[in-house]
Amino acid sequence: HFTSQQLQELEATFQRNRYPDMSTREEIAVWTNLTEARVRVWFKNRRAKWR
Rank of each mutant, 00 (worst) to 15 (best):
H1D: 11
F2H: 04
F2A: 03
T3D: 06
T3L: 04
T3P: 02
T3N: 08
T3F: 04
T3A: 04
S4F: 12
S4A: 13
S4I: 13
Q5K: 12
Q5V: 10
Q5Y: 13
Q6N: 04
Q6K: 04
Q6E: 04
Q6R: 03
Q6D: 00
Q6F: 15
L7H: 07
L7V: 09
L7E: 09
L7G: 03
Q8V: 10
Q8Y: 10
Q8S: 10
Q8E: 12
E9W: 15
E11D: 02
E11N: 04
E11S: 01
E11W: 05
A12P: 01
A12Q: 10
A12T: 09
A12L: 11
A12I: 10
T13H: 15
F14M: 01
F14L: 01
F14N: 03
Q15H: 10
Q15E: 09
Q15M: 09
R16F: 08
R16L: 11
R16T: 10
R16S: 09
R16A: 09
R16Q: 10
N17Y: 06
N17R: 03
N17M: 08
N17F: 06
N17K: 04
Y19I: 04
Y19Q: 05
Y19T: 05
Y19S: 05
Y19D: 04
P20Y: 03
P20T: 01
D21S: 09
D21P: 07
D21N: 13
M22W: 11
M22V: 08
M22A: 10
M22E: 08
S23K: 15
S23E: 12
S23F: 10
S23R: 14
T24Q: 14
T24A: 12
R25K: 00
R25V: 09
E26Y: 11
E26Q: 14
E26S: 10
E26R: 14
E27D: 08
E27R: 13
E27T: 10
E27P: 01
I28A: 01
I28Y: 03
I28S: 00
I28E: 01
A29Q: 01
A29V: 01
A29T: 02
A29C: 05
V30C: 12
V30L: 14
W31I: 15
W31V: 15
W31H: 14
T32Q: 06
T32A: 07
T32N: 07
T32G: 04
T32L: 15
N33G: 15
N33R: 07
N33S: 08
L34Q: 07
L34I: 06
L34G: 04
T35I: 04
T35G: 03
T35M: 03
T35P: 07
T35H: 04
T35C: 06
E36I: 05
E36P: 07
E36Y: 01
A37N: 10
A37P: 11
A37Y: 14
A37T: 09
R38L: 15
R38H: 11
V39K: 00
R40V: 04
R40N: 09
R40A: 08
V41D: 13
V41G: 10
W42D: 00
W42K: 00
F43S: 00
F43K: 00
K44L: 08
K44H: 09
K44W: 09
N45I: 13
N45Y: 13
R46Y: 03
R46H: 05
R47W: 04
R47N: 06
A48H: 08
A48K: 14
A48Y: 09
K49Y: 09
K49M: 10
W50A: 13
W50I: 08
W50L: 11
R51L: 12
R51P: 06
R51I: 10
R51E: 10
R51A: 10
R51K: 11
R51G: 08
